[in-house]
C-alpha cells in the first residue's frame, strides 16, 4: 500500500513538472506567435517597443553575450585547471577559491547589477555600455563555468594521469594533450549553461548595459538586452503585451536551442568516453 502511494506521488510530481513546462511553453506560444514574424526579427523597435521589432535588441544581446563568454571562458578554464590540477599544492588558497566560487554562485543577480554599475560603469568609467553589461554577466557565469569544467577535468581517469607521469610527460603536455581534450565537452557544456543563465538575466543588465534601444555602434554604447526589453514591455509600457510575448517567445526558443545543444554535446561526450 505504502509502495503504491509513493509510486503515485512520484508519478504525480513528475507529471506536474511536465505539465508546468507544457503550460509555460504553450502560454508563450499562444500569446507570442501572433506578434512574431520575419519582419519582427529584422526591424528596430518603434513606439516604445509596441511597434517594429527587436533587431537592435537581438544584436545588442549577441554582443553582450560575446563579451561575457569571451571574458568568462579563458578565466573560467584557467581557474578550473588550476583547481583540478595545481590547487592541491596550495590547499588553503584552493579552499578560498572554492569558497569564493560558491558565494558568487549564490549572489542574487540584482547584486551583480549594482556591483557592475558601481565597478564597471562608474569606477572603471565604462558607463552604461555593452562592455559593462558583458563583464557583469561574465562575473555571473564564471562559477557555473568553473564548476562544470572542473567536473569534466576530475572525470578524467586517474590512470591516464599516472600513465602520462610514467611516460615522463611534462605537466604542460599532459594538460594540453590529454586532460583538456578530455574535458573539452564539459567546457562547452559549461559555456552553454553560462550563456543560458546570461540570456535570461534582467536585473544585472538594466543598470549596466542599460535601456537604450538603438543599434549599438560599438561596445562602449549602451544597448538593451532581450530580457530587459521584455521586462519593459511587460511592466512599463501599456499595450506592450503583444510584442512582449513575441520577444519572450524568441528568448524561450533561443534558450531551448541552447539546452538541446548542451544535451547533444553531453551525449556525444559520454559516447566518446566509453
Amino acid at each position: 500500500m505504502r509502495d503504491r502511494l509513493s509510486a503515485v506521488a512520484a508519478w504525480g510530481a513528475a507529471g506536474m513538472v511536465l505539465a508546468a513546462f507544457a503550460w509555460l511553453i504553450g502560454d508563450v506560444l499562444w500569446r507570442g506567435l501572433p506578434g512574431l514574424s520575419w519582419q519582427f526579427l529584422v526591424s528596430a523597435p518603434a513606439d516604445a517597443g509596441r511597434a517594429g521589432g527587436i533587431a537592435s535588441i537581438l544584436l545588442a544581446t549577441v554582443w553582450i553575450l560575446a563579451i561575457a563568454i569571451g571574458t568568462a571562458l579563458p578565466l573560467g578554464l584557467a581557474t578550473a585547471v588550476w583547481l583540478a590540477e595545481f590547487g592541491h599544492r596550495q590547499p588553503r588558497l584552493q579552499g578560498h577559491v572554492n569558497h569564493a566560487l560558491d558565494v558568487l554562485a549564490g549572489v542574487p543577480s540584482i547584486v551583480f547589477g549594482l556591483f557592475g554599475n558601481a565597478f564597471f560603469a562608474v569606477t572603471l568609467g565604462l558607463g552604461f555600455s555593452i562592455l559593462s553589461g558583458g563583464l557583469t554577466l561574465a562575473c555571473m557565469a564564471l562559477p557555473i563555468l568553473v564548476r562544470v569544467t572542473g567536473a569534466g577535468l576530475q572525470a578524467v581517469p586517474a590512470e591516464l594521469r599516472q600513465g602520462a607521469a610514467a611516460c615522463g610527460l611534462t605537466q604542460w603536455t599532459t594538460l594540453s594533450r590529454l586532460l583538456l581534450p578530455a574535458a573539452l565537452p564539459a567546457l562547452l557544456a559549461g559555456t552553454l549553461l553560462g550563456i543560458g543563465r546570461a540570456l535570461a538575466e534582467t536585473a544585472a543588465l538594466i543598470f549596466t548595459s542599460g535601456y537604450v534601444d538603438r543599434y549599438p555602434g560599438s561596445v562602449f554604447d549602451s544597448a538593451r538586452a532581450l530580457s530587459v526589453h521584455i521586462y519593459d514591455l511587460a511592466m512599463n509600457v501599456p499595450g506592450g503585451e503583444r510584442n512582449g510575448y513575441a520577444s519572450a517567445l524568441v528568448l524561450v526558443a533561443l534558450i531551448l536551442c541552447i539546452n538541446l545543444a548542451t544535451h547533444a554535446l553531453a551525449r556525444g561526450w559520454q559516447r566518446s568516453m566509453s
Binding site: Y211, D232, N236, V237
Partner: peptide, 9 residues
C-alpha cells in the same frame, strides 16, 4: 521607469 518610455520616444 514611468517616464523612461516617453522620454525615449
Amino acid at each position: 521607469s514611468t517616464v523612461a518610455p516617453l522620454a525615449l520616444e
